[in-house]
């Protein structure tokens, strides 16, 4: 299995997290995303005509889109069905709903980070405002979930790919000038993810303390 990877990409980080949680061996093919723009090279455009990362090759299969890759990996390599609960229609619906929400986080919080860090030309104020709108929704959702004794975005005792899809650009949001100070439930959820066995870091993400509880 080969991951076309860029260290500073949150979308690539999602896949590295998933593969580590699943304990799968994989090979990385580092892509000079910045400043080399290698993801727009003919070789990579052939694999993904959208010119984006990540791309996963597994046998003959070539997949693009972080959320699609998460879905595939969880369904194929997690026999317990915890990460992607296909046999439970309610939870499956929730997962799909929050995977779409994760795309919204990419379009806002990640865009603001690309503007501040890699000088992408875009309306950064709109991106930051959009990120705060989504963070308020997520924070409220997580707060009410905690009241029900639920640690993760979707119901049930185990995290799902929805958590992994939302986590990277939330934890990297400050690099785009989006503070998480006003979202205590989001901050607690981030710490819970960091304490999962198999959790790995990326540049810009730091470990947390072990739970006091």
């Amino acid at each position: 299995m080969k991951l076309y990877d860029y260290e500073l990409s949150g979308n690539c980080y999602k896949i590295r997290l998933m593969l580590n949680f699943l304990g799968r061996e994989y090979e990385t093919r580092p892509v000079d995303f910045y400043p080399g723009r290698e993801h727009k090279s003919p070789e990579l455009m052939k694999l993904n005509p959208l010119g984006q990362l990540p791309i996963l090759e597994d046998g003959d299969l070539v997949l693009r889109d972080a959320q699609a890759i998460l879905t595939y990996l969880a369904h194929k390599y997690d026999p317990s069905g915890q990460w992607y609960p296909v046999s439970d229609p309610d939870r499956l619906g929730q997962v799909a709903q929050w995977l779409a929400f994760a795309d919204g986080i990419t379009a806002t919080a990640s865009s603001a980070r690309l503007h501040d860090t890699l000088f992408y030309e875009l309306d950064v104020e709109a991106a930051r405002a959009g990120a705060h709108r989504l963070f308020r929704v997520l924070d409220e959702h997580l707060w009410f979930a905690e009241q029900e004794g639920q640690d993760w975005i979707c119901s049930g005792d185990h995290p799902t790919i929805a958590d992994l899809a939302c986590f990277p650009y939330v934890i990297l949001s400050e690099e785009g000038g989006v503070s998480r100070q006003d979202y205590p439930a989001i901050r607690r959820w981030c710490d819970r993810i960091k304490r999962l066995p198999g959790f790995v870091l990326m540049s810009g993400v730091f470990p947390t303390s072990q739970s006091a509880a």
């Binding site: 260290e7 580092p30 000079d32 080399g36 400050e174 990326m202 540049s203 810009g204």
Partner: peptide
């Protein structure tokens, strides 16, 4: 590219 990547990992850790 390898050298670039190594240095970006380091700087990415310093940034936050």
């Amino acid at each position: 590219q390898g050298i670039r990547c190594f240095q970006q990992v380091i700087f990415g850790q310093d940034k936050p």
